[in-house]
Write a protein that binds this DNA or RNA. Structure first.
Length: 983
RNA sequence: GGGCGCUUAGCUCAGUUGGCUAGAGCAUCUCGUUUACACCGAGAGGGUCGGGGGUUCGAAUCCCUCAGCGCCCACCA
């Protein structure tokens, strides 16, 4: 029975249906695989795409790589888990939603924190859906039952637990330091979230006032309103005499003290060699101020506008307005010496490109240099986070592929400063810190006598007070707090303001009745919400998104039913997935987030669990367009993966990302490439189609290849393809084990197209002896298995067409062992190569002589000392598109006139009868002679070189000698023929 | 200012530890619908492996240097 199958493979009809079947089988979930207890583990945490919008080609390439690894290892019989998920990506997502509501003219403040977060969550749900569907489109065999999201309940608890743990270990602290501030996001940024953009800027040379002796140079004149020093190089003779002096200046905003300090960082060649020090608004200056104990005047506020410290003339102006105004002031007072244009790298926010304003602020930091000892943690024995993170890569506990990125990693890690983790964003993990009092801030507490308050509010007891406050709180989310203790009531500043608005209080009353008690400098509580109802307000800030993604490899594997575990330790110890799958086997991600993410996971995981988050890091490159430009919406050069899938199929898209790319190097993507792999997929489809159409259905069952051995009569071609298959299995396995995905893919393609289709299938059309059908089926099935991790859909589809009941997805990886005794021996190998050479030479000659394939010719071959080997292979030579009618193979004989003469190797002479063109033949012979003479000359020079003969390994010398002999014999033959042509 | 990478056929790229006359795909050209496939088959042309120097019997491969391109890091105000 033969089967009808469509001529061209149509992925659109197949892919979604197959994915659904896979999902229904539940085999993406390792628990369904029914593996032996001792099965080796293989796990990958999918880098969670940001919960903003859609997947792009970069995601597609990451999914292709990871699914390749996952499917390969699953077929190897490993306990294989690929855990998918999404990242809330606080700053990116919040920015996105802010933009959306801005279209309706709204800001987040219009909505309020709660409403705004509802809006964000709605958006995120949507994106998560899109991402999930697109990930499925790529054929990803990840376990959707274990899908996670960084804001899941369990993952959020992990975040709080780790925060508290780090706080208790004094690795997290609150510091008042200069930070990168994005005025648009109204939030801090970590150092590596700041990007730099080259631009032209004006460098202004001026003096603070007429009496000031030193001219300074700056690109940001407006910040000079907050200067407290001028720094010069200690070696600079021009300014030696001033060092240590203090000058009084007035910039029109009140008197300043300016101290002249010396610092080696100052370059004498730049500007005037004198630097105006603005401690509060420049990273460098901050450090100088710290060293020299200078006053730090904050003149720019969090809104990016000048504040009161800048003086009444400037207060409320934007930075740029202030600059203009201040420059005008300088001009009017004749203080400007000159203005130069210069190149400057401007710091901008990596999410919204807004220029960064460095300013001092009270924030939470992770101490990366503090050495600690943790009991039961093999890494942390008087070591810092940084030291451990360096160590695990240095001692190869974590391997980075390609290796050169280790250097980049070390360089970055060595220069890492304390990591600012608090963000003034609404969306994200709220910092698990509760404050009581905070002098001078919105949270400042004011103490009253309980009775006085009760009376004023017309309340009789505590319960009523609670109710009152609760109601007020309901109406005004997150702004109020009050606390009651031993007859005293503390009210937050905002609480009081509200009461004033409602006409319960006025300021005079507050002043009269407040208890004279000092607030503690800053009292706070770190951990889960304190049990007392009043008096504690949670830090309004959220955590850097990388804090939670730093926990990703393990927070996702923790038992999500976390409430049953009282302590974190309990939770960790009793989570089975964590035990089974962590450390993960490979972290596959783009090199662009090596620092953002990979480094952070290493920091956080070694600390929290005392183990590495992963064993290997595989870094892929960025996907670029044909010109090598980054794909982006604004350039309009982006390729939509979904569109490509619809046009060419997922398998083709996957191959186009994997073949031709190497780790750490960018990959150029364009449609023609995908088209090429679509053709390949179709080729495989047609190979299968041919085999299935020519083989009886009942033979399509499983069979042991051992039958072939006992059956015995394999032809040369059979042994040849079986031997190639054996090598293919070996090579692909080795390549995949060593992350050489591109190479493996290329070999697969080469075998399929060049070996199987072009030679063996063609042979099978006329050579019917041997167990052709069984061989074809065996080869096909193993080829499908080897190809499955690369092109899962088409292989699964064909697999089902063959009539296999199990999914190919969970089939066992092919065994080299199956082909153990089936290859060619040396003589046979030699023979096949010779036969192929003869065939190629004849094909070549036919085309050269313009003899179309339909015109049959006759041929006589003098095989010389290869006669015994090739005498029976005439059938191949005749039928493999050589267009030969009668063929004779002899050991040797008379020269034949009126025939086209070819020499194959050094010994085989071929006469083609019925196609003669003396001129052409002469030309060809001459050209061939010229080539071979050149070659002989090269080889001879090598062999004449005494140094070579003395030093080179024997095999190499032997090879060279053989080459020489062969070429000489061949040359002789060709020359003889040429002479006879002339005669 | 540091660090890294790239430069091989017209284009996109392979080329493991130095050792077959440096490979593949696309494009170009020639020929071709003999029981899968025109998303195809058979062939051809095309490269001083960025330049220079060195190590070596031998270099696309290792070292130095120069040039071009790209990326990352850095507080040049």
């Amino acid at each position: 029975m033969k089967k009808e199958i469509s001529k061209a493979y149509n992925p659109q009809e197949v892919e979604d249906r197959i994915y659904k079947k896979w999902e229904e089988s539940d085999f993406f979930n390792p628990d369904s695989l029914e593996l032996p207890e001792d099965a080796e583990k293989f796990s990958i945490s999918m880098p969670p795409p940001n919960a903003t919008g859609v997947l792009h080609l970069g995601h597609a390439s990451m999914l292709a790589y990871q699914d390749l690894m996952i499917r390969y290892n699953r077929m190897q019989g490993k306990n294989t888990l690929w855990l998918p998920g999404t990242d809330h990506a606080s700053i990116a997502t919040q920015t996105k939603v802010e933009k959306i509501i801005a279209e309706k003219g709204q800001t987040k403040y219009d909505l309020g924190r709660e409403k705004f977060l509802e809006r964000v969550n709605e958006y995120v749900e949507n994106s998560k859906n899109t991402i999930r569907n697109q990930t499925k489109k790529m054929g990803s065999s990840c376990d959707w039952e274990r899908e996670r999201y960084t804001l899941d309940d369990g993952l959020s608890r992990a975040v709080r637990e780790v925060f508290v743990k780090m706080y208790n270990d004094e690795l997290i602290y609150r510091g008042d330091r200069i930070v990168n501030w994005c005025p648009r996001c109204e939030s801090t940024l970590a150092d590596d979230e700041v990007e730099h953009k080259d631009q032209k800027a004006n460098l202004y040379y001026f003096k603070y006032d007429k009496d000031f002796p030193i001219t300074i140079a700056t690109t940001r004149p407006e910040t000079k309103l907050g200067d407290t020093a001028v720094a010069v190089n200690p070696k600079d003779e021009r300014y030696q005499k001033y060092i240590g002096q203090v000058f009084e200046i007035d910039l029109g905003n009140g008197a300043h003290q300016i101290k002249i300090i010396a610092d080696r960082e100052v370059e004498m060649e730049f500007g005037t060699g004198a630097l105006g020090v603005t401690p509060a608004h420049s990273m460098t200056d901050w450090e100088m101020a710290e060293k020299n104990d200078l006053e730090k005047i904050k003149i720019i506020g969090e809104d990016g506008k000048m504040n009161a410290n800048a003086g009444v003339d400037y207060e409320g102006l934007t930075v740029l307005e202030a600059r203009e105004k201040f420059v005008k002031y300088l001009e009017e007072n004749n203080l400007i010496e000159k203005v130069e244009e210069m190149d400057q790298s401007l710091s901008i926010c990596y999410r919204c490109d807004t220029p960064i304003e460095p300013l001092p602020s009270k924030q939470w930091f992770v101490a990366v240099d503090r050495k600690i000892t943790i009991e039961g943690n093999k890494y942390f024995q008087n070591k810092s986070l940084k030291e451990v993170a360096l160590e695990v890569v240095k001692n190869q506990e974590i391997k980075i592929i390609p290796e050169r990125f280790e250097k980049t990693y070390f360089n970055w890690m060595e220069n890492l400063h304390d990591w600012c983790i608090s963000r003034q964003l609404w969306f994200g993990h709220r910092i698990p810190v509760w404050y009581k009092t905070e002098v001078g801030s919105e949270m400042e507490a004011i103490y009253f006598n309980e009775e006085v308050i009760f009376q004023k509010l017309n309340i009789v007891n505590e319960s009523e007070f609670n109710k009152f406050s609760w109601k007020l709180n309901e109406e005004n989310k997150n702004v109020l707090w009050a606390s009651r203790k031993k007859g005293e009531i503390q009210l937050g500043r905002q609480y009081i303001n509200l009461l004033k608005e409602k006409d319960f209080f006025n300021e005079d009353w507050v002043q009269e009745n407040k208890l004279k008690r000092k607030n503690k400098e800053s009292e706070y509580f770190v951990g889960e919400k304190p049990s007392e109802d009043f008096g504690w307000i949670q830090d309004p800030d959220t955590l850097d998104t990388w804090f939670s993604s730093g926990l990703w490899t393990f927070s996702t594997l923790l038992d999500q039913d976390h409430e049953k575990y009282k302590t974190f330790e309990d939770w960790v110890v009793n989570s089975t997935d964590l035990k089974n799958f962590h450390p993960t086997s490979v972290m596959e991600t783009g090199y662009d987030i090596l620092f953002f993410w990979v480094a952070r996971m290493i920091l956080m995981t070694t600390y929290t669990l005392g183990e590495a988050p992963f064993e290997n890091v595989y870094l892929h490159g960025m996907v670029r367009d044909k010109q090598g430009k980054k794909m982006s919406k604004s350039l309009g050069n982006g390729i939509d993966p979904i569109e490509m899938i619809e046009k060419y199929g997922t398998d083709a898209l996957r191959l186009s990302m994997i073949i031709g790319s190497s780790p750490g190097n960018d990959i150029k993507m364009y449609e023609e490439k995908i088209e090429g792999y679509r053709n390949f997929v179709n080729k495989l489809w047609n190979i299968s189609r041919y085999i299935l159409m020519s083989v009886d259905n009942d033979k399509k069952t499983k069979f042991p290849i051992g039958n072939l051995v006992s059956g015995g009569d394999l032809t040369l071609a059979d042994k040849w393809i079986l031997g190639k298959m054996k090598k293919l299995i070996h090579d692909i396995t080795e390549d995949l084990d060593n992350y050489r995905f591109s190479q493996a893919g290329e070999k697969l393609k080469e075998f399929t197209w060049d070996k199987l289709a072009d030679w063996y299938l063609e042979t099978s059309k006329f050579e019917k002896d041997g167990d052709k059908e069984i061989i074809l089926l065996k080869i096909l099935q193993d080829l499908l298995k080897l190809s499955h991790p690369f092109i899962p859909f088409v292989t699964e589809h064909i697999w089902q067409e063959i009539g296999n009941e199990k999914f190919i997805m969970i089939e066992k990886w092919p065994e080299e062992e199956d082909y153990r005794v089936l290859g060619l021996n040396e003589a046979e190998e030699y023979t096949v190569n010779k036969v192929h050479d003869i065939i190629r030479k004849i094909r070549n000659a036919r085309i050269e002589y313009n003899v179309e394939i339909n015109r049959k010719i006759d041929a006589i071959i003098y095989a010389g000392n290869d006669y015994e080997l090739i005498k029976n292979e005439g059938i191949l030579i005749k039928n493999l598109r050589t267009g030969i009618d009668k063929l004779e193979i002899k050991e040797g004989g008379e020269k034949i006139k009126n025939a086209t003469y070819l020499v194959v190797g050094d010994n085989i002479e071929v006469y083609l009868l019925g196609m003669v063109d003396k001129e052409k033949e002469k030309k060809n012979l001459e050209k061939e002679i010229e080539n071979i003479e050149k070659y002989i000359d090269q080889v001879k020079r090598k062999l004449d070189n005494q140094q070579f003969v003395q030093n080179a390994p024997v095999e190499i010398i032997k090879k060279e000698r053989e080459k020489y002999q062969e070429s000489m014999t061949k040359l002789e033959k060709l020359k003889k023929k040429l002479v006879s042509l002339d005669s």
